[in-house]
Amino acid sequence: MTSAPNHEQKVIAAAQWLADQNEPPAMVVRTIRERFSLSAKEACDACALAQKYRINRRAFG
């Protein structure tokens, strides 16, 4: 039996989702908060992590 994802897992999931978007949504923080049930800080953390994912993908393929 698996438990509900903790906050860190939700932030990572949101970051992965955002990094996969060709065009980020216009109101990205609001979208991430609603879609992944995150706080404003967690949504901002997810945005920062998504940017790191994009940079790593460009650098390392």
Results as ranks from 00 to 15, higher is better:
55 I>G: 04
2 T>S: 08
18 L>V: 04
50 A>M: 05
1 M>T: 12
16 Q>E: 13
44 C>E: 13
56 N>F: 11
25 P>R: 12
45 D>M: 12
44 C>V: 13
41 K>A: 14
19 A>T: 03
36 F>M: 11
42 E>K: 06
40 A>T: 15
15 A>S: 14
27 M>H: 09
22 N>R: 07
59 A>H: 12
50 A>P: 11
25 P>E: 15
42 E>T: 02
54 R>P: 12
41 K>G: 14
39 S>E: 05
13 A>T: 03
59 A>Y: 07
9 Q>F: 02
33 R>M: 15
48 A>L: 15
51 Q>L: 13
47 C>R: 11
36 F>I: 08
49 L>S: 07
3 S>A: 10
43 A>H: 04
13 A>I: 00
45 D>Q: 13
19 A>N: 06
15 A>Y: 03
31 T>L: 14
58 R>S: 15
13 A>N: 03
17 W>G: 01
27 M>I: 04
12 I>G: 00
54 R>M: 08
32 I>F: 06
33 R>E: 15
7 H>T: 10
45 D>S: 13
16 Q>V: 05
14 A>D: 04
18 L>H: 01
29 V>K: 12
47 C>P: 05
49 L>C: 08
13 A>M: 08
15 A>L: 10
31 T>C: 12
32 I>Y: 02
8 E>D: 06
24 P>T: 11
6 N>F: 04
23 E>M: 06
10 K>H: 02
19 A>L: 10
57 R>W: 04
17 W>K: 01
9 Q>L: 14
7 H>Y: 03
49 L>V: 10
1 M>N: 00
8 E>F: 06
4 A>F: 03
46 A>V: 09
39 S>F: 02
52 K>E: 15
12 I>R: 12
53 Y>D: 03
2 T>C: 00
49 L>E: 12
2 T>F: 12
19 A>F: 00
7 H>Q: 07
56 N>A: 10
10 K>M: 13
23 E>T: 13
5 P>V: 02
21 Q>D: 02
9 Q>G: 02
10 K>E: 04
38 L>A: 09
5 P>F: 01
30 R>G: 08
30 R>M: 08
49 L>A: 14
53 Y>N: 05
18 L>C: 03
24 P>C: 09
9 Q>I: 08
61 G>H: 06
25 P>L: 10
26 A>C: 02
25 P>S: 14
58 R>H: 10
57 R>G: 01
20 D>M: 03
14 A>Q: 04
48 A>Y: 04
3 S>W: 06
46 A>K: 01
41 K>S: 14
23 E>A: 07
41 K>C: 08
52 K>A: 14
55 I>T: 14
31 T>W: 02
29 V>Q: 09
5 P>Y: 05
14 A>G: 03
30 R>Q: 11
10 K>I: 01
32 I>L: 15
28 V>Y: 02
2 T>G: 04
11 V>Y: 00
23 E>I: 13
35 R>A: 07
23 E>V: 07
46 A>P: 10
59 A>C: 14
56 N>G: 08
11 V>R: 07
3 S>Q: 11
59 A>S: 14
10 K>D: 02
34 E>V: 04
60 F>V: 08
10 K>N: 05
22 N>V: 03
59 A>V: 10
15 A>N: 02
1 M>H: 05
44 C>F: 12
53 Y>A: 00
